[in-house]
Amino acid sequence: MTAISADGHMPAPVRRWSRYKHPRSTIRFAVLIAVLAFLSWSIAFLNIDLYRIIGAFPRLWEILATRYFPPDIDYVLDDSFLHSVLRTIEMSLLGGFFGVVLAIPLAWMAARNITISRRIAYPLGRFAIMGSRSIHETIWTILFVTVLGFGMLAGTLALTVFCVGFAGKLFADELEAIDMGPVEALRSVGASNLQVFQYAVLPQIRVAFTGIAIYTWDVAFRAATVVGFFGGGGMGWYLKRTTQQLENTRVAAILLTIIVLVLLAELASGWLRHRIAKMR
């Protein structure tokens, strides 16, 4: 072993070290290059002008400032519009409620640790939740509108399916993280599946589930503002009509209303969730 002399001078044997470690670094570089190649190919394939990205924001600002300003506030204070706001809220409540109610058994099936049967129920629950999550809520809206006709029934059902996917995933994650001790204890005294769920699982997750349910409503409300755009009823329908008729100041007013309402919903749900978290 050679010591470093006091003045920092390094004696002869040169030690070798390189940040580049053959198999790992090579794979990493290959993946990096592949990703970069895909990105640049995408830019070329989609024919994207990078200058337009930078230009988009000044342009957006300009359009907002000239065409959309001033927002036609009177339009959103109109009775029929206010009724549509109320109906949007109702739709989100219904969708959120039924979505959460349906999501609980599905999440129970789709939680690996406490599912009724790993062969049948688990893949079934997983598939139901993944399926309703994978399809965007607007596509659900269009499908339901096609089958059931325009109106809030279609919007409500689309929101329900959306909430099943959204809440189901969160519920299942929460269920998979529970403490298995009580579950095993109850199983060992011979409790049925339902009894295990009620006495060992439910007490552990009640607070978390309530929080998730409120959050789901918050997200459902956000989605409810646009389902009307595709015929699902509520204020989205007004957005569609004014956009198509190029009544830009009215569009601006509706957009402002949506932003304000969503912020209020988020504040309300945040406050409620905070209170519920404290009850734990």
């Binding site: 989609l46 024919n47 957006l60 359009i63 956009t243 932003i259 988020e266």
Partner: peptide, 28 residues
């Protein structure tokens, strides 16, 4: 908060107005 509270459909509508049709407004 602003980014999360505006639905992607609305963002897309705004950007279609600003940069025209095509993939770019979708990306934005």
């Amino acid at each position: 908060v602003l980014s999360r509270s505006i639905h992607e459909i609305i963002w897309a509508l705004l950007f279609v107005g600003a940069v025209g049709l095509g993939a770019l407004p979708g990306i934005l």
